[in-house]
Amino acid sequence: MFRFGYAVFRAGVLPRWSGVALVGTQGLPEAAQLFAAGVRDLGIAGMGAGLLAAGPASVSGA
């Protein structure tokens, strides 16, 4: 998940905060894992919302 989150942040195609949410929740102690899972889920949901807000991509050619 670290590499995926970093790639999302660097690419800037999806919301950058969602990449930070994925990277920031790695390696936390066991007591914080429940909270970290919620933050990760929000990050994934943010990526989906970003894709839906962008709309369909136009295909040119052919």
Rank of each mutant, 00 (worst) to 15 (best):
Q33M: 14
V39P: 04
M47V: 15
V20H: 01
L22G: 02
A54M: 02
G5T: 02
R10M: 08
A32E: 05
S58I: 12
A7H: 10
G24T: 03
P29N: 05
G48F: 09
V20E: 08
V8D: 03
W17G: 02
G61K: 02
G27L: 12
L51H: 03
L52D: 06
G55N: 07
G61P: 01
V59K: 05
A54C: 00
F4Q: 04
R16E: 12
G50E: 09
R16S: 05
A45M: 10
G5W: 01
G48Y: 12
V23M: 14
A7W: 13
G43I: 06
R40P: 00
F9D: 10
T25C: 02
G43C: 07
A45W: 10
G46T: 03
G19T: 02
P15H: 08
G12D: 10
T25E: 01
W17C: 01
S60P: 00
E30V: 12
F2V: 11
A54W: 02
G55Y: 11
V8C: 06
L34M: 02
A45G: 01
A21K: 01
L52S: 11
S60V: 09
G19K: 00
V59F: 11
A45S: 08
M47Y: 02
Y6A: 15
F2Y: 13
Q26F: 15
S60Q: 10
W17N: 03
G55C: 05
G19Y: 00
A45L: 15
P29W: 07
F2C: 03
L22P: 06
A32Q: 12
W17L: 03
A53S: 07
V39D: 01
M1I: 13
A49Q: 03
F4G: 05
A36V: 08
F9G: 05
A7E: 12
A21M: 15
L22D: 02
A11M: 13
V39Y: 01
